[in-house]
Nucleic acid binder design. Sequence first.
DNA 1: TTTAGGG
DNA 2: CCCTAAA
Length: 607
Amino acid sequence: MEKVVEVEGSDEGKFEVTDLEKSNFVLSSPKHVADPVVYKLVRVDGNGRLVPATDDELMEVEGLLENEKREAHIVADTGQALGWTSNEVSSSGMPQLESSEGLSLSENTEADTEKLSTQLEETVPSSAQCLSDDHVTQPGTVGEYLKPLDGPIQGGSSTYAGYINSKPDFSKLKGEICLDNLSIKELHEVFKATFGRDTTVKDKLWLKRRITMGLTNSCDVSTTTFVIKDNKLVKKDNEDSSNNVNLATVKEDPAVAVEYNVDLLNSFSSQIDEHQTISAVRSENNVVENNLANEDLAADQRAAKRVRKPTKRYIEELSEAESKEYSGRLIASPKNIGVRPLPSICHAKPARNLPLEGRTVITRLDSLGGFGIQVPCVYRVRRSRPRKNVTALLKFHPSDMGMTATFIQRGLDVHGSQMGNESMTKVLEVKSIPKQTPQQFVAESNNEKSSTDLGQNMELNYVDTSGDTSDDNVVTVPTAKGGIRRKHHRAWTLSEVMKLVEGVSKYGAGRWSEIKRLAFASYSYRTSVDLKDKWRNLLKASFAQTPTDKGANSRKHPSMPIPAPILLRVRELAEMQAQGPSPNLSASKLLACGGGGSVNETRPGYL
DNA sequence: TTTAGGG
DNA sequence: CCCTAAA
């Protein structure tokens, strides 16, 4: 039953392959065992390469899941929508998986189940084309990892972590953060600062672990003492460097077993959450599944439900006739789950919606590599930075707006190649597709040059995630011209800041686009400008304070200040860069851009 | 388009 | 954060 989210290995093939999937297959009985299906969170890069899902994406997914769980019961299918099966997987193990999955999912009637399973199949055939050669070379294994939420429950499920190596750069941060002495409340604050969202988990251990993972980018947090130093977890009881995760350690804590490559380090925590969430969701959905993989998780979920935010906001936003962005969310959030858009490589076509337990699920027909697959699609619209002329469009096409709103309400899925300036038009075009389900799809051009050329493909991003996470406050600000524009605020999480710092250290301050693209590949909502601004602020902050005290950090509670260590780092970098602009810019640049091959840059040794 | 700055 | 001038 467990849902597995797979993270695609980097091009460099730095991930370790696991047989986990297999073992799971064999070990677990079809019934109880989860569907062996492995999902990967990946997205397709511009050149058609599969790249690991970014933190952002993961987080989004996570958000969705959480959201979902709050939303009473949602069909089990949701979970699946989250990931994409790797090509390899699909080609080989898929068939079997399908059935089992369908069954497992179901609370539904057989018929529905079948449909579901059908929908669920998220095969992404045509491996060769999609996958980089590296991946292709390891057909059988594929860098999939299973993350059995309830490892303990199912003996079969084994955890495996193929954590290759840590990022050197992170070790630069100085100072340590001790979680041990914090109260739950404090831990919650830290948690929020770190992940940008609240948590309802009361379990200190869990919190500490999660935070540690987030800050440490490591899954090696099986320790009971949480002191983070130099971005590494310091085990007081076990003074080992813990620089790398060792499998043994990981196994101790099944919940933490993950395989990921360097690029995904930061995604790790998110993934965990995701998995957990998924499991929880599933448990709710499947009465049969009594295995609460993680009590904490379950608790979290329940709590989450209680915390669910009122709809008011959505309504307001809708009324504002805001771009579909919001409308999408508005509609989608309640009963649907967001689904990660298919890799642009694949053609996504709106297919049909199937009634499930009274609900309709929109399915998308994905034709990949000649296969036609229906996948449940529920998209949440990403709340992206408003494309400059969203408002303009509105102005120009007031009527359109109305229409759009209509579709949205009617649950049309928008099918377009891209949400650009003409997005409006496209949306309109799509409206022709009648859908009963309240769904909205918005195609958003991906940050990277990706999807664009795939005319028919749409990049669907659901987003926001955040309803739960850092509340993306969207505040309307009166414009000088009299217009009203939205100002959304997304609090910078600690991990984001850390990434930023890391990025600056790697590529140098000023090369924001680079940083955004590489080190910051995730967080799609952070633009290079944002990075720049944030850095500016960090500099200000780092110089403004801290000169004196270095050990002691934060001053005030409000908005959990940036940990001193980070500020220190920032200052260092600032000074460092002020003096000698990075030695081999060209080198790094070449590495970064040139190959197009590796996402994981192998940095020069400096820094 | 991306950066740097100002607001 | 947003906006804009420059490059």
